[in-house]
């Protein structure tokens, strides 16, 4: 396998891990985020600093990066997710900008805007694949469990959810914490992949991109998120020459998907035998939805 192909595969899997994190929050719990680049930044900077300045092995460093992202997510979620409405969406922008500003100004630790070069390239294909498989397994298990059902209840009707005995703010915070952990891990692996990180990589465009791929793939579908990120990552690679149109296309995709197919590519379907049966028109697959009365 050529270095180039290997690189693309690693990138696909890293983006996939991040997309699963966003999907859990936005797709399965119904909370829109515009600041997930912050958790990516926390993961990569923690990993970079721990490995370079403290000589820690990369594995605990990546895991600590994910954990720190999770803790920050929890702390951000506590006040904002108690409220309905768009409080989290706005707070997430604020959070992402603040974290970027802190990284940019905390020269002594983060090396400021110039970034951190020379990170050990520990993110090899087998490593990434192992992380990806384990985390994908966890994500798919989670959505098919009591916790997944609670998330979906919060998403579909938070009033009904609380009158079915769910402490909805608690589940929203849980969802955000797990989501931040996934994205933090992706950040750590990313640092070990490109070996050079800079605050500007984690700006609002990155946040928007992370959410866009999930919306594109399908809100409420884990495999949709993976499909969305695969397509967008590959298209981005292919269209590098016309990169000035990239953001315009992202924007248009978001609007057009919302107007014509708000469920995204896969809707709430997961890729699997059930979807296949439905595609070939055999008996209506169990657990699949049709449009409600309104």
């Amino acid at each position: 396998m050529s270095n180039y192909t290997e690189g693309i595969l690693i990138l696909l899997m890293i983006n996939g891990i991040a997309a699963m994190g966003v999907s859990l929050l936005t797709g399965f719990t119904g909370i829109f985020t515009l600041g997930h680049a912050a958790y990516l930044a926390i993961g990569s900077y923690t990993t970079a600093i721990l490995t370079l300045d403290y000589g820690l092995h990369w594995l605990p460093a990546v895991l600590l990066g994910g954990t720190l992202a999770m803790i920050i997510g929890y702390l951000v979620g506590l006040p904002t997710l108690k409220l309905m409405g768009d409080y989290y969406a706005i707070a997430s922008i604020g959070l992402a900008e603040s974290i970027r500003l802190i990284i940019e100004n905390w020269q002594s630790v983060t090396n400021g805007a110039r970034g951190i070069p020379g990170i050990d390239t520990f993110t090899t294909l087998p490593t990434t694949a192992l992380f990806f498989v384990v985390m994908a397994y966890g994500a798919f298990c989670l959505i098919n469990s009591r916790i997944g059902r609670a998330f979906k209840a919060c998403r579909d009707d938070h009033v009904a959810a609380s009158l079915l005995g769910f402490n909805t703010p608690r589940y929203r915070v849980l969802s955000l914490s797990i989501s931040a952990f996934y994205v933090g891990i992706a950040g750590g692996l990313y640092a070990g992949f490109i070996s050079f990180i800079q605050p500007v990589m984690f700006d609002m465009l990155k946040s928007t991109e992370m959410t866009s791929v999930v919306v594109f793939g399908g809100l409420g579908s884990m495999s949709g998120a993976l499909l969305g990120t695969t397509i967008i990552t590959l298209v981005t690679e292919l269209f590098r020459p016309i990169s000035q149109y990239r953001m315009l296309i992202y924007g248009l995709v978001l609007v057009l998907v919302m107007v014509f197919r708000p469920e995204g590519l896969l809707g709430r379907h997961e890729v699997g035998p059930a979807l296949f049966r439905q595609l070939i028109g055999r008996h209506p697959a169990p657990q699949r939805e049709e449009r409600g009365p309104h």
């Binding site: 469990s145 009591r146 059902r149 609670a150 979906k152 209840a153 579909d156 009707d157 009033v159 009904a160 009158l163 079915l164 005995g165 709430r268 169990p286 657990q287 699949r288 939805e289 049709e290 449009r291 409600g292 009365p293 309104h294």
Partner: peptide
């Protein structure tokens, strides 16, 4: 206030799960 897009079974399971936790 049903979860319209979830299955009939899943609607009931969402409520039922409180008594069977893991």
């Amino acid at each position: 206030r049903l979860f319209h897009r979830s299955t009939v079974l899943e609607n009931v399971m969402t409520a039922c799960q409180h008594h069977h936790r893991y």
